[in-house]
Amino acid sequence: MWKFSVRRTLIMIPQLIVLSILIFVLAQLMPGDALSGQVGPDVDPKRLDEIREQMGWNDPWYEQYASWMGGVLQGDLGQSFRFKIPVTELIGQRIYNSFWLSVATLILTYLIAIPLGITSGRFNDTWRDQLITGYTYVGFATPLFIFALVMLWIFGFALGWFPTSGSVSPGLVPGTFEYFMSKLYHLLLPAISMALITTYSTIQYLRNEIVDTKQKDFILTARAKGASETRVYNRHILRNSLLPIAAFFGFEITGLIGGSIFIENIFGYPGMGQLLVESITLRDYTTLIATTLIFGVASILGALLSDITLSIVDPRIRIK
């Protein structure tokens, strides 16, 4: 397993390099540079050229790439065009918000998917299964942003059960219990809305895996040993069916990134997704590039994570 993990992690390095080059090229294609936002219109263009020379912006691309990467590695993502503060500062709190939103969504997704998937798979072709399958079809057919708007309208505005924007009530001191509860309260509705929709694929997947595994010969072997139905499910069917779900985990993260862009904007939740959209509408290129880079790294890490989880649960991969 160690060998596999190390090798798998090493593979990630070229992936990250390719990603960073892509994003760097993207950045080069953007109009203007960091100076355009920072200096007043009255500065002498000659002086600007000098600064450019000084900053190394006329150097060959690979030198520029190297210095950009060096900065990124040291946590320097540049200055925001619009807000005139370092992008890292802008991202700071939002990345936490997004992270916790994702974690909450993931937990909810699995909380919904596992019992439903198991019920649906175990009692396949009964009314319970049909009910759950029906739900997954609805989940599949409903666009996330429409559903999120409906949820926001019902539970946020009409019933007033949940806050309709922000990630924490103003005036609370970070670190206190109230602050924590308020954070949780704010991310609950977006997380539920997202989980209810995105969970459909996990349910379907789990159901099909269970229906498949149920018919495997080794299940008969287990029954022939005298294992009770509960044991057969817990020990044999579930273990084998949850495995592909682990593989799915990485894609789940990629899906979350996409979903969070809608969700955060609809719920006015200050996270990375919202930042991305803002940076596009405000043409804040440095921020846009930084957020893209972070999203890219996150999905590569997601794939890594799911491969390693899979290798832990599946001995067939572990050995190789």
């Binding site: 294992a227 044999h236 273990r239 001995p315």
Partner: peptide, 28 residues
């Protein structure tokens, strides 16, 4: 089935036809 489970695997054992598929791939 609960009565049967006391008999299967204890008083009655079975050897299955297909060795390639009759073992759980994820269990030692």
């Amino acid at each position: 089935s609960s009565e049967l489970n006391k008999v299967r695997g204890k008083d009655i054992g079975m050897i299955f036809q297909d060795p390639l598929t009759s073992l759980n791939p994820l269990m030692q």
